[in-house]
Design a protein around this nucleic acid. Sequence first.
DNA 1: AATGAATGAGAGTTCATTCAT
DNA 2: TATGAATGAACTCTCATTCAT
Lengths: 191, 191, 191, 191
Amino acid sequence: MRPPKISRDELLQRSANTFKRLGYHGTTMDALAAACGLTKASFYHHYASKDSLLLDVLAWSHERSKQALFAIAYDEKLTPRERFLKMGRRAEKLFRDDSIGCLMGVVAIDAAYGKVELMEPIRRFLDDWRDALFNLYRHGRGEAEALGMARQLVSDFEGAILLSRIYGDTSYIDAVTKRGALPIEDSSQVA
Amino acid sequence: MRPPKISRDELLQRSANTFKRLGYHGTTMDALAAACGLTKASFYHHYASKDSLLLDVLAWSHERSKQALFAIAYDEKLTPRERFLKMGRRAEKLFRDDSIGCLMGVVAIDAAYGKVELMEPIRRFLDDWRDALFNLYRHGRGEAEALGMARQLVSDFEGAILLSRIYGDTSYIDAVTKRGALPIEDSSQVA
Amino acid sequence: MRPPKISRDELLQRSANTFKRLGYHGTTMDALAAACGLTKASFYHHYASKDSLLLDVLAWSHERSKQALFAIAYDEKLTPRERFLKMGRRAEKLFRDDSIGCLMGVVAIDAAYGKVELMEPIRRFLDDWRDALFNLYRHGRGEAEALGMARQLVSDFEGAILLSRIYGDTSYIDAVTKRGALPIEDSSQVA
Amino acid sequence: MRPPKISRDELLQRSANTFKRLGYHGTTMDALAAACGLTKASFYHHYASKDSLLLDVLAWSHERSKQALFAIAYDEKLTPRERFLKMGRRAEKLFRDDSIGCLMGVVAIDAAYGKVELMEPIRRFLDDWRDALFNLYRHGRGEAEALGMARQLVSDFEGAILLSRIYGDTSYIDAVTKRGALPIEDSSQVA
DNA sequence: AATGAATGAGAGTTCATTCAT
DNA sequence: TATGAATGAACTCTCATTCAT
């Protein structure tokens, strides 16, 4: 049988970027198909509907962030401070891919109003991010305080990503990273 | 000539809320008309197009924030700290109106990709907000530092508004206010 | 406001004829719109979907048959035999309109498989037709027998309409009328 | 060269049933392939197009009815009356296969409007049926009268099949058989 | 022969906008 | 100004058919 013109992974990546750039409503099936080098009809061979595609894109995007971003927080080869700074650099890179923005934030604003099936995956993504940061903040302070700081940091990052998009300037993300690193004691000193 | 069924101000307010709730692409002319108690055709007596309406809505929203939010920063009857805390309370109220969100952020994500005529008003809004905060941070520190803090605070607020929308919990906004107030010395002590 | 290009009644009539001629699946929204002198988009101003139109068309068609066909069976100014013959002539005319066929039979074959919301209106139509014929057969024989005869006559008519469509020859309908009239005693003789 | 997964006969049988159930327009190539346990692409190795398949299905269905139904009329081992009653029982069985309906009637209503290439095979089928019945009615009456009776009986059967489909009750077919048997003198008496 | 992938044409539907009273 | 009706363009999705292994 004829070989696929695009792999599932590539398709999801390009669809994610398209959704991120244009928003859910702003993204047409034609735009998605074009981004994947397919015709509209061919695209439906891979996904039965725009909605089901979005759900898979959200799941794929979450998984990818887990591996490329959140996992850093649990990398025991680095000090907490190093992990945090690495996460900041990685975030700046991930959220700059193709266009500046966070797919989850975009969908939350653009399509998710009152739709539980979309809000839930988005919240799970943010929860995972928060938990990763919490893991870096927990040392040397109470759980509640660390959790509050982690929550706020996710919020800070989302704001920075949004402002970066608006001003076309990713320094907002760097600034959040810098500020967030301050309360993390360098473990090498501790050790 | 019949009298208008709805005032210009009321129409802009309701349109702003509808855009904020559903996003630009998610808002249909039918939804706008319904929100204003008009038929779609009648709505066009007030605004010639969805785009021109949006521009007016952005301007109206900016003006409103100027008076209701940014102006607080220049109220000499209050100490800087009092002004800041009042701005935080007012923000929490404004961005919770009808649905949680910031119209500017919504439009930036949903409709503004590559459209200068939309990005410019949005940036001007954020700049004004930043300037207001800058005015509270300038005392007792250098201009550059104060400007950086103000810039970051706007970003923090936008992130908090987004997370508040996603989690249905405006405490994110309060947390930003609380943290942002810390570096502002209480003028009453100073005076 | 602009005057409608077509009345509700005319629209339903023309839609009914189009469905009857082309079947449900064979009838496109374009065909319906063209039959009514409207564009496809304008057609949606009158009906929200092809399905909801079909339901209204079935109801309209039923009502029309009630008044133009079934009512004859209860016209006390005529003898039962006269009524029956008049019904036959009217049927031949109704089911020849625009194209030979019975809308209910067409939809039953073309769209109704397993769909209760379509089968029910179709059955109610046939039941009303049967009841009308029953009213003509009940005199001089038992209820059960008359009911059986009426049921079979409806079946006969539907078959005749189908064969008339296939052979392009409405004499099948006349033949059913002639045969069905035989067991009805002429009341004038009775009186 | 792999052996075919399905025989030509089986494929035609299943396709016939699918067309009968869903109508021509309602039957998709996917539905046909699924009914035959093939993929859509594989199905095209057997038939080049939906239309050419339909023609073959009509021919196959005609041939099958000839052997299983019409031939009974010429079985000299039975009396005309016995033949007729056997035909009725067989019809009830054939037209109940998979779903209640007559493929020819379904196609006539659903796809054949104005298409000679479809109407002709359908008419030939009905003509053959009529001729078979004519063979049973010719004894003891004029040719013209017998032909008229046969024509009407085919019409009666088609109506009964349609009503059976609509009401989910094959007793309509039995009733037609019973009535149609009356004018056939029992040859055993004659012989 | 079998099949997963691809596709042009078209179907049903929505939408921003215009018309005519 | 208000509004029911009308509409071209575009959108999501389906379908019969073809391609390439």
